[in-house]
């Protein structure tokens, strides 16, 4: 409790705050810029309460995802927070809004958060949502905070939904068309297509996994690796346009891996210019590219936020002085 109060007091006193976690996602979003002094704030760490029978866990936001996973594994459960680097903090993953590769089956990150406690720009500790698996009491602050890049509040504590780990989870590979796989498999956890092969993650009862694999002649394999390259980004596009986007990406000096059925395409390049070209391809298909690493000269988002006036007002509601991670999101500050 006092650790949370400490965060609140730091924010209250600070002129500008940069929220830090494990630094695993620091390529996402623009660097914090401020003219005056900058106070760095980190959320406290620790697992407060695991409730396996309720399928919930209360955890302080500074906890590394790996620690959380280990604590849940003791109960045969998991939370589908799947950052590439498990040293990432729970709060950092939530603030950056990075849904994991199993989104096709388990849904986006925002659906896993039941309750948040945040320190607002005025240093108040505000709670939203609730500890139960189902709740419509008041406005949905948890979803609003996911992907807010620390500009609405310092997430200090969350209650997450957990689930039993599937009996079996195995990766397969195939050259079958990804669209056909999507149509014929019942809720696979991931369909990762690189333009030639598709990596398929099947979860569930072992006999069902085997039967589905046999039906489509899937070959067991290891999990796919993310596209290499110092300059990386993530395209978000309507799932139905992945095929057309792939045709455009093939002409570029990039490697990519598309999450079929989701619309996320991971892109890697050795040359920052190629990442920019991938961004152009994405926008031609109605999507956009978020820079995740490298390419320092590339605009982090590449496009303005929609409904900018509404965004400005929402931001001002939580951080009226614009103290929190100033400059990170392309949202102007409302003059108060």
């Amino acid at each position: 409790m006092s650790a949370i109060e400490d965060v609140a007091r730091s924010v209250e006193r600070a002129a500008a705050v940069e929220i830090t976690g494990a630094g695993t996602h620091c390529g996402i979003g623009a660097p914090v810029v401020t003219e005056g002094p900058l106070t760095r704030v980190a959320a406290p760490a620790g697992i407060v309460d695991v409730q396996p029978a309720d399928m919930t866990v209360r955890v302080l936001a500074g906890t590394p995802v790996a620690s959380l996973a280990a604590a849940l594994a003791e109960h045969g459960q998991e939370c589908p927070l799947d950052p590439e680097d498990a040293r990432a903090t729970v709060g950092g993953v939530l603030a950056c809004g990075v849904s994991g590769p199993r989104r096709l089956r388990h849904g986006p990150l925002r659906d896993a958060v039941l309750e948040v406690r945040v320190v607002t720009g005025e240093g108040r500790v505000v709670r939203g949502g609730g500890p139960t698996v189902k709740n419509v009491t008041g406005y949905d602050l948890p979803r609003l905070l996911v992907g807010s890049h620390g500009t609405l509040g310092v997430v200090v504590e969350v209650v997450l939904r957990t689930q039993p780990r599937a009996e079996t989870g195995r990766w397969f590979t195939t050259t079958a068309a990804p669209g056909e796989l999507r149509a014929r498999l019942y809720r696979p956890a991931c369909l990762a297509w690189d333009g030639a092969r598709t990596h398929v993650l099947l979860e569930g009862h072992a006999a069902d996994v085997d039967a589905e694999a046999r039906m489509l002649d899937l070959v067991p394999t290891a999990s796919p690796s993310r596209p290499p390259g110092a300059h990386r980004g993530r395209i978000s596009v309507e799932a139905r346009r992945i095929g057309a986007l792939a045709t455009r990406l093939r002409d570029l000096e990039v490697t990519w891996l598309a999450e079929v059925g989701v619309g996320t395409v991971h892109v890697g390049a050795t040359d920052p210019g190629a990442l920019d070209a991938a961004r152009f391809a994405a926008s031609a298909e109605g999507g956009w590219l978020l820079r995740e690493a490298g390419a320092p000269d590339l605009d982090p988002f590449g496009l303005p936020v929609p409904n900018s006036a509404l965004h400005e007002r929402v931001r001002a509601a939580f951080d009226p002085l614009g103290k929190l991670n100033p400059g990170r999101l392309p949202i102007a500050q409302v003059q108060t």
Binding site: V136, G263, L329
Partner: peptide, 23 residues
């Protein structure tokens, strides 16, 4: 009239769609 959320998996900015649902 404006669109909140979208058919693409992520949109830049806040999840105003999530906020609107249940309001």
């Amino acid at each position: 009239i404006t669109r909140l959320g979208g058919l693409a998996p992520d949109t830049p900015g806040y999840d105003l769609r999530g906020c609107f649902v249940g309001s």
